[in-house]
Amino acid sequence: MMQKEFCRIISQTEIAEDIFELSVKGELVSQINAPGQFVHIRVTDRWGPLLRRPISISSFNKATKQLTMIYRKEGQGTALLAKMVPGMELDILGPLGNGFPIEEVSSGETALLVGGGIGVPPLYELSKQLAAKGCNVIHVLGFQTKSTVFYEQEFLKNGETYVATVDGTYAAKGFVTDVVDRLRFDCIFACGPTPMLKALEQHYSDKKMFLSLEERMGCGIGACFACVCKKADDPLGVSYKKVCSDGPVFRAGEVVI
């Protein structure tokens, strides 16, 4: 059950260039039911920037009632968010959406987690939970350039981790999809740019796969119909799914991406 709550900021750190890790404490943490869910944040008590910002949850701890988000400072809203300091309160609506189904991978099976850029964060909680239940977890993480790489060490604790940078300034040069070809796995979980998700869906259509989509949102709760996508079994018709409330995680082949 989602709720709207003023959550206290516990910490905020710039962990890579323009990449911030923000932890807050609140009762709504108890409502999180899967890795890959997100929260909708109001970054000001004024009316500009107007809309909330959807940000994925990168990890949470129900015992301490804390959740952590990792976001990229990019526009007006995230620039304001980046200036906030511990002790301040943040207007958060959440948890929202449906996360990754960890029950789809059994103990002993291998899960491949593929993340691109700011699509990497929600995979972290997923990685922790899969590793905890005895799955083999392999990570392939793509970034633009060396200065924007984050969480490599954290992911390494849970399993093999391959990093690729588009410009080759760190680790392998190229896209995550170049790395995936060499690996063996039972199931893919991915979050990142749409071209990356499309490439994975096309190349590994024989594999079990779950993709987390991104779309511009209005309300974040399913009321405004801003973030709809077509269902794959009715591409020309009126059938649809809402990324915010039916997703953001879908089984590959369920919707047109």
């Binding site: 511009r216 405004c224 018709g237």
Partner: peptide, 10 residues
Amino acid sequence: FGNPTPRVAE
């Protein structure tokens, strides 16, 4: 179904 996305811009 409505229009293609993006459907909103701040």
